[in-house]
């Protein structure tokens, strides 16, 4: 799914990475725990989170994640936006909750990313 579609489906505001908004992601992962992002993600996913701090961008950087959606209307501060820009990442924010945002993306064809269950 193109990140531009993610933006439109979630009615999200884009804070960084407008230039690469036409790039695609194959799957998504949602968590407020970066520990779990580091342990469970095994692909270059779209990350949905309600946690807003610099370590979200750092975690994404280590995992080669290039797009982050902050849910529940959480907005990144300038330091987060600047770090994301320097790492060439897309950052957006949606007013939807994690469950609703995930459901909207999933029902529009964006698969989940999880370890074997």
């Amino acid at each position: 799914m193109k990140l531009a579609e993610v933006r439109d489906i979630l009615q999200a505001k884009v804070f960084a990475g407008e230039k690469i908004i036409e790039s695609e992601v194959d799957s998504a992962f949602g968590s407020d725990l970066m520990s779990d992002v580091l342990a469970f993600v095994n692909d270059r996913v779209l990350l949905l989170t309600g946690l807003v701090n610099l370590q979200v961008v750092r975690t994404a950087e280590m995992m080669d994640i290039s797009a982050i959606v902050f849910v529940r209307g959480k907005c990144p501060d300038e330091s987060i936006i600047n770090l994301a820009k320097s790492k060439n990442m897309v950052i957006m924010s949606t007013a939807h909750t994690m469950y609703v945002a995930s459901g909207k993306l999933y029902s529009n064809g964006l698969a989940g990313n999880e370890r074997e269950v």
Binding site: M34, S35, D36, A39, L51, Q55, T59
Partner: peptide, 10 residues
């Protein structure tokens, strides 16, 4: 802060 889930060392 989003850490301390007990997944670090594993």
């Amino acid at each position: 802060l989003g850490f301390g889930a007990g997944m670090g060392l594993p």
